[in-house]
């Protein structure tokens, strides 16, 4: 029993780290993705080519590699004086940077699809009614875009929950790191495997809640097409 409580305690701590990375990534990537999507839709060609190239590189390479690069390469370039310390806080920030950039690029493509999926006639109707571009975006296009974007976004966000485990590659102490630690030995316990499998329940429960939440949002937007 004591062993169980010790493990749960460690897993809870690990899950808190997982959740922190998840939440900060979401808060950063949701707006950054919108900015990137505007960049890739820009009529100013150099900007749109540049943005599309960045999105291609980020989506075309593994997130794990990006984590390595962001955490280790600055130190290599500056001759060993890494801007990141070995402390957990810095591993967290480095992970956030990598995750936000990576997810913002995925989100930007979803946003782009959502914005371009709103019929041109909607914008024209707004223009003819004397609305400004800002009013058209916020009062006409935005909600229709949100509706189109919710299903693919919920997919990405559920993937994000699980992707946070990649941060363990730079020793960020998220929940899988915590579960695994009981195999090699931690808090006086070693050689047990079940905590690692037990972490799956945390993911399942959390994604279950998210699924319900997205279902609720989709239902709220059901009154229009």
């Amino acid at each position: 029993m004591q062993e169980f409580l010790t493990v749960i305690d460690a897993l809870n701590e690990g899950f808190f780290q997982t959740f922190k990375l998840f939440a900060v990534t979401l808060l950063g990537a949701l707006p950054l993705g919108l900015i990137i999507s505007f960049g890739s839709m820009s009529k100013f060609k150099p900007l749109s080519y540049f943005t599309k190239t960045v999105v291609w590189v980020i989506r075309g390479t593994p997130l794990m590699l990006q984590l390595f690069i962001i955490y280790y390469v600055p130190g290599q370039l500056s001759g060993g004086a890494s801007p990141w310390s070995a402390f957990e806080d810095d591993r967290f920030i480095a992970s956030c940077v990598a995750f936000i950039i990576n997810y913002a690029c995925y989100f930007s493509e979803i946003y782009r699809g959502g914005i371009q999926g709103v019929p041109v006639g909607q914008r024209e109707a707004g223009e003819v009614l004397g609305m400004t571009k800002t009013q058209i975006f916020f009062k006409v296009t935005l909600l229709q875009m949100v509706k189109r974007v919710v299903p693919p976004m919920s997919n990405e966000i559920i993937t994000l929950v699980k992707d946070t485990s990649l941060a363990r590659i730079i020793s960020y102490q998220e929940i899988i790191w915590a579960g695994y630690s009981f195999i090699k030995g931690s808090r006086g316990i070693s050689g047990i495997v079940w905590p690692l499998f037990f972490t799956g329940l945390y993911y399942l429960a959390f994604n279950g809640i998210l699924t319900l939440l997205f279902g609720y949002i989709e239902k709220k937007l059901k009154h229009f097409n």
Binding site: P119, G121, A125, V128, G130, T132
Partner: peptide, 20 residues
Amino acid sequence: LRENRLHFGLVFQQFNLFPQ
């Protein structure tokens, strides 16, 4: 431009009502 265009109103072939 917006001020001037308000002299005109337009009803579209595809209605273009705001669905939300």
